[in-house]
Each structure stands twice: as C-alpha cells, then as structure tokens.
C-alpha cells in the first residue's frame, strides 16, 4: 500500500500540524492530494472522517449486523513509521477539502455526516464527462435513470461507473445550471431520472 503513496507520506512531520502558517497550508494541500490519489487508486467514492474508504452499501450492512463499524485501515495512520494525524488536524483537512469542493458530506442536506463523498475530479469535469457519455451513447433528449447512468451496462468503463447516486446528482448540477439537463423526481421528491438536451 505504501508504494502507492508519494514519498512525503513517510515523512514524519506530515502528521503534525506545522506551526508555520505557510507551511501548514502546503501541508494540508499535500494531504488533499494524497487523499484524492488514494481514493482514485482504490476506485472509491466515500471516505470516513477517520480516513478509511468505504462502500456506503456495505457500511449500512455492517452497521446493521455488527452495530458499530469495525476498525479499518486509515489513510491518516501510517503504521510503517508509527505516526497518525491527530483529530483536530483531520478536521482541518476535511474542512479544507469541503470548502475546496473536493469533498461533500454524504448527508447532503444537513452536512453533518461523518462520511464524505470524495471528488477526485472536480464537479465540472465530472459534468462534462457525463455530457460526453450522453453524446457517445446517443442518449441526448432521452430520459435516463440515475441508476442507468451509474450502474448500467453502457457506463462500464467510464470513470463514473459505480458512483453513488447522491454524488451523481451533485455532479449534474453544473449541467442544470447551463440548462442542459432536467431532473425528474418521484413522488417522494427523490431524483430518479434525468434528461440531457
């Protein structure tokens, strides 16, 4: 696993919030890079506050069966050099991730969930990728369900294959803003389908 990380990952001072403000800023962005890289390499969309990647569906099952999630491998903990990021510094990193738009709380409405969707591409490039999908699959002006978009056979091989639905809806927002897409909701108000023109 360590080989996937840049050399800075085994540099002990990385795990201590640096007192120098300028350095601290760079340190946080180094962390963000590491997290995004990590999620991308693992094809993962979600990460807990403690820094371990999860699959939301399996998480639900785990909670249901075991009550509490078990101790998982965390990006913030480096056992090779016996270092871990302290809680307060994790908070700072997440705050920065969220404010940069590179992460979003899984509980999109209340924003107080301890798990996050990680955007290892920014929202705009996701949106343009989705648009590209519509163009190549000639689905323009057709209604496509969100499930079809994320899990369908035609999406296999695309980077957004397997993306959680709430995250996908978030990614469609730039298209909505450009009036290229219309969302269709069910009677509960949940987005189920989309039409891109």
């Amino acid at each position: 696993m360590a080989s996937a990380f840049p050399p800075v990952y085994s540099f002990p001072p990385l795990y201590t919030p640096q007192p120098n403000a300028l350095i601290r800023e760079q340190q946080v962005s180094t962390w963000i890079d590491i997290i995004l890289q990590y999620c991308k390499s693992k094809d993962s969309w979600c990460m807990t506050f403690e820094g371990s990647v999860i699959d939301l569906s399996t998480l639900m099952i785990e909670i249901a069966t075991q009550g509490i999630p078990k101790e998982r491998e965390s990006i913030f903990k480096n056992n090779d050099i016996q270092r871990a990021v302290p809680q307060s510094f994790m908070e700072e990193i997440w705050k920065k991730l969220v404010s940069d738009g590179k992460a979003i709380s899984t509980d999109i409405k209340t924003k107080n969930s301890r798990t996050f969707y990680i955007f290892w591409k920014n929202v705009d490039s996701w949106a343009s990728l989705i648009l590209q999908w519509f163009e190549t699959t000639t689905k323009l002006n057709q209604v496509v369900t969100v499930y079809e978009l994320t899990q369908g056979d035609e999406s296999i091989g695309w980077e957004f294959y397997g993306m959680p639905e709430p995250m996908m809806i978030h990614c469609l927002k730039p298209l909505l803003a450009r009036n290229r897409a219309t969302l269709m909701k069910d009677e509960m108000g949940k987005v189920v389908a989309i039409k891109v023109v």
Binding site: F11, P12, P13, Y15, T16, Q18, I23, Q26, Q27, T30
Partner: peptide, 19 residues
C-alpha cells in the same frame, strides 16, 4: 518542520514544502 510526539518534538529539514 516539526514532528510532535509524546516523547517530545522532533525536528526535520523541510524537504517537501516550499517557502
């Protein structure tokens, strides 16, 4: 740069971040 541990503060040369 520093590395804070229970045993004390350890010092390292800043190799990764630019000033």
């Amino acid at each position: 740069v520093v590395d804070e541990q229970l045993t004390g503060i350890l010092y390292y040369k800043n190799l990764f971040w630019h000033i």
